[in-house]
Amino acid sequence: MSYDARFRVWRGDADGGELVEYTVEVNEGEVVLDIIHRLQATRSGDLAVRWNCKAGKCGSCSAEINGRPSLLCMTRMSTFSETETITVTPLRAFPVIRDLVTDVSFNYAKARQIPAFAPPDLAPGEYRMQQVDVERSQEFRKCIECFLCQDTCHVVRDHEDNKEAFAGPRFLIRAAELDMHPLDARDDRADFAREEQGIGMCNITKCCTEVCPEHIKITDNAIIPMKERVAGRRYDPLVWLGTKIGLRKD
């Protein structure tokens, strides 16, 4: 069943902009990205939006829908009522380039600051790891780099001057991932998170976990264990398990 929905889409660039109203056809089964594409094809050929996979796999189409950080391609129109006005705005934590497209280079800069995987002294093909051990890091490697967690984290979002000192949840899980990698040769990942990534600024509000489309338990499984890690000591799976299965549940 088709109906006409009311949309407000932010249009503008670094110098400013405004919410533009559109009344636009919506068909059964569509997602918000389809509506944006319909606007492009029929109304505003120059409406800027990023997307690639249209299946929640690439993390390109991040924006805010009615103020909530979301993937445009995974937000179904049926989650709204037909009379509701739907507001689509760019990610608030990053500078706007044009319309729904923001400058996310902050994230790439942060990625470059984390010391890379340090390979063990083993020949290629000689790596041996157990599934249970790789699974901890694999959870974090599900990250599609949509940066919704970065956008929602108040430490990044509300205080521009924190950006220098705070890496944000996406890169705290990267540090945790390397820390928990069974064969990573470095043992200073937690120190790095404390000293260089500003993990202390996180006050465990868990907003990042709530918006993560990959359902990564950013706070429970990465940030909290990293905060609790004793400097210099190797990661202790038993302690970690304890934090995971009960002690920390709220």
Binding site: D13, Q40, S44, G45, D46, L47, A48, V49, I97, R98, D99, V101
Partner: peptide, 9 residues
């Protein structure tokens, strides 16, 4: 339509 900045058309 529009200009050269991020213009999908």
């Amino acid at each position: 339509e529009g200009h050269r900045q991020f213009n999908p058309g």
